[in-house]
């Protein structure tokens, strides 16, 4: 199902009212299900993209990536599925990542992953505790997951830019807003360019694996540039626990390793071109926008 720009902003609006950045993942999940998440996740990457972008922008925790994986794997939404270990895109056979859906009280052999982003509530466990769907569906799982993760990282990048932009306008040093210093302006411009570079690519993820991988890499690059430059612009205040910035930056670091990292997917893309000895023309001239 393709959403119009209006549909997208209406959906984004209601998601913003629903998702709570301070809530547990399972509480946000419940709120999303009430909003019709199970229909959205079956409707294709358009609505899923909006949900993940808003998850990223609001910094809210959720386990809905499980449902994206479940649907692509031919399982029911709501299933307790497994994800590859951090940094990998291989279908796990021994150790897997599980989400906060796993009941850590009742199951033995789980290692809660606090790591850099404990709020996401991931656990490491034996793959036998989790569902993965048919093996031949795994490539489709990776494609769908990467499209969602791309949107997630994109949302985080946008939130970081907005924080830094606001700070650049409000914060005064040497008698003028720091946003009047060219060194600061050009960093913000570079973040904006990286975000805008990912935007049309993300709109085309429905076209398949290659588009999904490319969009995921561009979104990952945007999040990385945003993390670096926005941190620098927020300076001392952005280094504190009180300021919201660190949550986005840390989450972007964690999420970057789900279903492969930005750099591993980049190398994967290059290997594909070398193997096929051709560079696909991913974008063709056509009169109408995909969105």
């Amino acid at each position: 199902m393709n959403l119009t720009p209006d549909d997208r902003s209406t959906l984004a609006q209601s998601l913003r009212g629903t998702l709570d950045p301070t809530a547990d993942p399972l509480d946000n999940d419940a709120a999303l299900v009430e909003l019709g998440w199970h229909d959205m996740v079956e409707s294709g990457p358009d609505a899923v993209g909006v949900v993940f972008e808003v998850l990223g922008m609001t910094g809210s925790s959720s386990t809905v990536l499980d449902d994206v994986v479940a649907v692509a794997a031919g399982l029911e939404p709501g299933s307790t599925v497994g994800l590859p270990r951090w940094g990998s895109a291989e279908r796990p056979t021994t150790i897997a990542l599980g989400s906060a859906r796993l009941d850590t009280q009742r199951l033995a052999g789980l290692r809660p992953v606090a790591g850099i982003d404990p709020e996401l509530g991931f656990v490491e466990c034996d793959a036998s505790l989790l569902l993965f769907g048919d093996e031949d569906r795994w490539p489709a799982v990776v494609t769908a997951a990467r499209a969602a993760i791309g949107a997630w990282l994109f949302g985080m990048a946008r939130a970081m830019l907005e924080m830094a932009r606001t700070h650049a306008v409000d914060r005064t040093q040497f008698g003028r807003p720091i946003g009047s210093f060219q060194a600061v302006r050009h960093k913000l411009a570079d973040v904006h360019v990286a975000i805008e570079a990912a935007d049309p690519a993300l709109a085309a993820v429905g076209n398949g694996t290659l588009d999904s991988d490319l969009a995921r890499v561009l979104a990952g690059q945007a999040a990385a540039v945003a993390s670096m430059h926005c941190q620098q612009i927020l300076a001392g205040v952005g280094f504190t626990e009180e300021h919201g910035f660190h949550r986005y930056m840390k989450r972007a670091m964690f999420v970057d390793g789900l279903f492969g990292t930005t750099s591993s997917i980049c190398a994967e893309l290059g290997r594909g071109l070398l193997r096929d000895n051709s560079v696909p023309r991913t974008v063709q001239l056509q009169a109408h926008a995909p969105r």
């Binding site: 990912a198 690519a201 994967e268 290059g270 290997r271 071109l273 070398l274 560079v279 991913t282």
Partner: peptide, 14 residues
Amino acid sequence: AAYLIGEAFTALHA
């Protein structure tokens, strides 16, 4: 090679 080609490809796609 793979990584660098992937990066250039991504930049062209953008």
